[in-house]
């Protein structure tokens, strides 16, 4: 049981640019799979194909064994889609639009729309037309629409883009809650660091091709490249202590140590041994961007 891309390819007219090339990928229930790549890498295309909004040129998507091309209704009952842009009918009012979507879904309890409006803070805007809503409110409308099917898999396309900090926190909490509830999430972003906060795995796409799927270990257990040391009254002598761990640099409140696989534990021990009071030791760079760039450079 999973959401599976099976050798999915897609080209766009009129110049036949390949948007996806032979993508094979699987999202398990209870897992957050990130999709990362620069603009035009194929993230949105992959999500739109999985949502049934766009048709693959070849290959197929299966949702818990239901092929999207032949069992679209059954497959879509397990899916919820949050598009990057608001593509809802601009002239429609919020609640009637949701009731329209509910009528298409078919088995939505009448009270559920009210509950979802309340949950996402749109109750007071339920009579407003879509065109009058802010970007954040439109995103919430999309989130509500995606929940009408009570989906087992969620397809979230750049879901944090354009949101205010409060909304980002809300959506993050929702993503975690859905994962905890056993929902599989496919979450696209061009921000690998943001994805790494949620994702169990991250698929790196480049020019429509899947370069690599980074697992949890690769995402979270990469050696540090920069370590910040917080030591009051840090001085040149302290820098000399740090030289054997990398390239130290004096900064206000302490120092930065750069190098491949900087040993944070060793730094702490050496500084204490030298008589410094270490107030903090943080990894400034988890190496994700560098890893991504390496993958892309390798592909090109």
């Amino acid at each position: 049981m999973a959401l599976e891309f099976q050798n999915v390819s897609k080209r766009f007219w009129p110049n036949r640019t390949p948007a996806l090339r032979d993508l094979t990928l699987k999202v398990e229930p209870g897992e957050v799979l990130g999709l990362v790549g620069r603009n035009g890498a194929g993230k949105t295309t992959a999500i739109r194909i999985a949502a049934g909004v766009s048709l693959p040129g070849s290959g197929n998507v299966q949702v818990d064994g239901h092929p999207l091309d032949r069992e679209k209704v059954a497959a879509s009952r397990l899916l919820g889609w949050v598009p990057e842009e608001s593509v809802h009918e601009e002239s429609a009012k919020v609640e009637p639009l949701l009731r329209y979507y509910a009528a298409i879904v078919g088995d939505v309890e009448p009270a559920r729309i009210g509950e979802l409006l309340e949950t996402w803070g749109l109750t007071q805007f339920r009579r407003r037309r879509v065109r009058t809503l802010s970007l954040g409110m439109r995103r919430r409308l999309s989130l509500i629409a995606s929940e009408l099917t009570q989906p087992k898999y969620l397809l979230l396309d750049e879901v944090f883009n354009g949101l205010d900090p409060e909304a980002v926190v809300t959506v993050r909490a929702w993503v975690r809650e859905r994962r905890a509830a056993g929902c599989g999430l496919l979450l696209s972003s061009h921000n690998l660091r943001e994805l790494a906060k949620f994702a169990d795995r991250v698929a790196v796409l480049h020019e429509g091709r899947l370069l690599k799927v980074l697992d949890r270990a690769e995402l979270h257990e990469r050696p540090s490249r920069v370590v910040r040391v917080q030591v009051p009254g840090f001085d040149e002598a302290g820098l000399r202590v740090l030289e054997r761990f990398g390239t130290p640099e004096l900064v206000p409140g302490g120092a930065l140590v750069r190098g491949e696989g900087v040993d944070a534990g060793g730094i702490a021990a050496a500084l204490v041994h030298a008589g410094y009071v270490v107030q903090g030791l943080t990894r400034e760079d988890d190496g994700l961007e560098e890893l991504y760039l390496e993958l892309v450079r390798g592909a090109t």
Binding site: A51, K72, S76, P83, E90, I104, L148, T149
Partner: peptide
């Protein structure tokens, strides 16, 4: 709806094209 893409949220629901 097709040109404004407002058909897309409907296509994403449990229905066929």
């Amino acid at each position: 709806p097709r040109s404004s893409r407002s058909l897309e949220p409907v296509l994403g629901l449990p229905t066929t094209r």
